[in-house]
Simulated scan of single mutants.
Amino acid sequence: MSILSWLAEQRIQEAMRSGGFDKLPGHGKPLELEDLSGVPEDLRMSFKIMKNAGLLPEEVTLRKECVTLEKMLAACHSSGTAADGERRELESRLTLKKLRLQELMRQRGFENSSAFTDYGDRIQSQLTREE
């Protein structure tokens, strides 16, 4: 063991004895490990960094908006001129979101990627379950 490793270990032990780790967030709770197996390997680090920064990739945001619009459309049961107009507006917004998502996927080269398609399906499933 090198002197630096030994010194680091000594400081960690000292901090543990003095209670330096007692008030850390999540103390006493199990670790929440993220399952990134559905994320293509070359995207995992960038997605993790964006998630930690509170950002979402545009395709995830678009998918979430599509799910919300689809649920709103499913909830439009009443009939009448106002309801029909609202339904058409929601359908129009949904179509625009889906077109933007398709264009974004084409630009990024993901349109023919089976790994990314599978990942997109998993995101869609998660978004549908959460809401």
Rank of each mutant, 00 (worst) to 15 (best):
I12M: 12
Q13D: 11
A83E: 14
S79A: 14
R108M: 09
G85V: 00
V60A: 05
R63S: 04
E89F: 07
S46L: 13
L104T: 01
T95Q: 12
M45K: 10
E86K: 13
A53I: 02
L94T: 03
D35I: 05
Y119K: 01
V60G: 02
A82Q: 11
R44P: 05
C66A: 15
H77C: 09
P40H: 02
P57I: 04
L24I: 12
Q126M: 09
R100C: 00
G20L: 08
S5T: 10
E65P: 02
E70H: 01
L24D: 08
E9I: 00
P30V: 05
S114M: 14
A82G: 02
N112M: 12
L31D: 14
S78E: 15
S114K: 14
E59K: 01
G109H: 08
S37Q: 07
T117G: 05
E86W: 00
K98H: 05
R11T: 07
M72H: 06
G85C: 08
Q107T: 08
L4V: 13
M72N: 09
T117N: 11
K48Q: 14
H27Y: 15
G38C: 04
T95W: 04
E9S: 11
M45R: 12
Q126A: 15
F110I: 02
L73A: 03
K48I: 04
G38Y: 00
F116K: 07
G28P: 06
G26D: 05
L24F: 11
E32V: 08
G85R: 10
F21M: 14
R63H: 02
R106N: 07
D35G: 10
E70D: 10
Q102A: 12
S92T: 13
P40W: 00
T117D: 08
R63W: 03
K98W: 05
S2D: 11
R129P: 06
